[in-house]
């Protein structure tokens, strides 16, 4: 369960405040996989960052008894000078894994992400697809109540996409996802409920199909 209470988040531009969330009170129920839809710039990623605890509302509170992964996205999340391997070591350490466990995590991430020699290259040499493969591969080795996924299921070739989906389906037997995607088939396949972010408000739909319909209306 995730509870938002009077949450307001805005960005200050030169002339005005642009509201991402405008005094939103809202509860995401437990036990469902959530798809998040909205137009570019509507604030989907900011919402994910706030749910993941690395961005903060200007006022109001977000609370949840659950644990969240880092936001897995196409942008950021990696220090360019570190190699893929160093990054996996770093994340394993902050989650308190022992050296033996870290070795196992490295093995499985290396295998899953299919980075080959790039695994020992600085991340700044990676394409955005490679970064999200690494990020997603890492997340499979840790336990969370919610995985936060920002548009990363459509990277890589067909083969890799298929593999990711299979892995994710297995993973969500034990946890849930908050998924931002512009791909309607992916949303339909992975999510139970949907949230549409629009004009500073969240619209909750019990069925992901309804959320998609609502999103399509906004776009018309």
């Amino acid at each position: 369960m995730i509870a938002l209470r009077n949450v307001t988040k805005y960005y200050q531009t030169k002339h005005e405040r642009k509201y991402i969330l405008d005094n939103v009170t809202f509860t995401i129920p437990s036990g469902v996989n959530v798809g998040i839809l909205g137009r570019n710039g509507a604030g989907k990623s900011t919402l994910l960052r706030m749910l993941g605890g690395i961005d903060f509302p200007n006022s109001g509170h977000i609370s949840s008894p659950n644990s969240f992964s880092w936001p897995m996205g196409l942008a950021g999340g990696f220090q360019g000078s570190m190699t893929g391997r160093q990054n996996v070591q770093f994340v394993s350490r902050i989650y308190g894994k022992s050296e033996y466990e870290i070795k196992k995590v490295i093995e499985s991430v290396k295998e899953f992400s299919e980075l080959g020699d790039y695994f020992d290259m600085p991340i700044k040499t990676y394409s955005s697809g490679m970064k999200s493969r690494l990020s997603f591969g890492m997340s499979l080795s840790f336990d969370f109540d919610y995985l936060i996924i920002d548009e990363t299921l459509s990277v890589g070739d067909k083969n890799f996409q298929q593999k990711s989906k299979t892995a994710l389906r297995k993973k969500i037997e034990n946890c849930h996802i908050l998924l931002v995607s512009h791909s309607m088939p992916v949303l339909k396949e992975m999510c139970d409920v949907g949230i549409v972010v629009h004009n500073g408000q969240l619209h909750y739909c019990d069925r992901i199909e309804d959320a998609i319909e609502r999103y399509n209306q906004i776009n018309e």
Partner: peptide, 11 residues
């Protein structure tokens, strides 16, 4: 120098 690592909320 470490801002990208703030993506992990423990940091």
């Amino acid at each position: 120098a470490n801002s990208a690592l703030f993506a992990y909320k423990q940091v």
